[in-house]
Amino acid sequence: MSHALDFSAGQLVTVEGLTFRYRRQTALAGVSFAVGAGVTGLLGPNGAGKTSLLRILATAVPPNSGTVRILGSDPLTAAGRLAVRRQLGYLPQQPGFFPNFTAYEFIDYVAILKEITDRRRRREETLRVLAAVGLSDDRGKRIKALSGGMRQRVALAAAIVGDPRVLILDEPTVGLDPEQRLRFRELIAELGAGRTVLLSTHQTEDVSALCHRVIVLDRGVVRFDGAPARLTAAAENRVWHSAERSPQAVVAWRTGVGAVRNVGVPPPDADLLPATLEDGYLLLLDPSTATEVAA
């Protein structure tokens, strides 16, 4: 299937056979997928290659091999890269700030970086994105005086300057308290309407709450690509309660109520429990059950 065809079919971001080496390690070993509008979650353990993949898509670094098409442009060419950058919002894993800038000054600076040179338009856009992340009243505060959650909102505001069609969010909810995480989910869900949002996370709850699709990466390879419900369904009849850890369990932990929650291949008389996305994810990462779950 050609990339042009993918694009016309609504696949706004397409990657094929991506490989990437970072510090002599293989971070990506032939990753392929295509995504359209909506929020797609990228799930995987540390070192799975999520950040490498997102940095390639954000045009921060080129892959060692493979092809990328974003909104029909090839970011590996100078013209394509510029076209992509004009339509792209990026929240890096560790967003940096000028700590003495106010939130307003920082977003104003980002708007300059995004080629909004007209002062009036820049002001409107700065106020718009700060309002979108709920920071209108705190825009005059210096960034060094803001809490971690508020800084993360400044970073998200920076990402959406210029109303980009593709948003790349690298662990946007990391370090946020539960209430902040819920607010962030709400924001991202709103942003996902009519846009392509690719977000990486360790939190399966984020994926369940936000994403219509999940791609699980492990050691540079795509282990699963589909609806979160499908991954949850793959864990049905594989989660059970017991008084002690069951020998058949791939993963097991004692819950707050004292019983052990086991995930794996249950014994015949097991006290089965409803599965969650996390259960499906854990089974997918275990070599003994991965193939079956991925299928």
């Binding site: 921060a60 950058r85 990026y90 940096g96």
Partner: peptide, 9 residues
């Protein structure tokens, strides 16, 4: 701000 500067147009 290196990373966001790098990917800016």
């Amino acid at each position: 701000t290196y990373e966001i500067t790098l990917v800016a147009p």
